[in-house]
């Protein structure tokens, strides 16, 4: 099994980077991806929905998408937005 490609999330996951982030995921479509959230210090809703869309797409295509090294700020903001790391990745297919 090939080592997953890594997407390193930028420090500020604000609205202006949402489009770039979506493109970055699209480029890696069809292969397992590890999302490195170690540098994140701000997570906005616009980027959250990119991550959710990616998780859903990867799930549909049957590839692995994993979250690694989530920073405290990432987890905190994720929590504020009503999600937890596991639901965030697994719950996307919920009916």
């Amino acid at each position: 099994m090939p080592a997953p490609r890594v997407i390193e999330l930028p420090e500020y996951l604000d609205m202006p980077v949402a489009a770039q982030l979506a493109e970055a995921f699209l480029k890696l479509a069809g292969a397992p991806v590890a999302v490195d959230a170690s540098k994140v210090s701000r997570l906005g809703a616009s980027c959250l929905q990119v991550l959710l869309a990616a998780a859903r797409s990867w799930k549909v295509e049957g590839h692995a998408l994993t979250l690694s090294n989530a920073s405290a700020r990432f987890l905190e903001d994720l929590n504020l937005l009503g999600l937890e790391p596991d639901t965030f990745l697994t719950g996307v297919i919920a009916p």
């Binding site: 949402a18 990119v50 999600l83």
Partner: peptide
């Protein structure tokens, strides 16, 4: 509680 049902697949995603 976050309602995520409306999030599309990346292919149809509009940032």
């Amino acid at each position: 509680h976050c309602e995520i049902a409306d999030v599309p697949l990346l292919a149809n995603f509009e940032p």
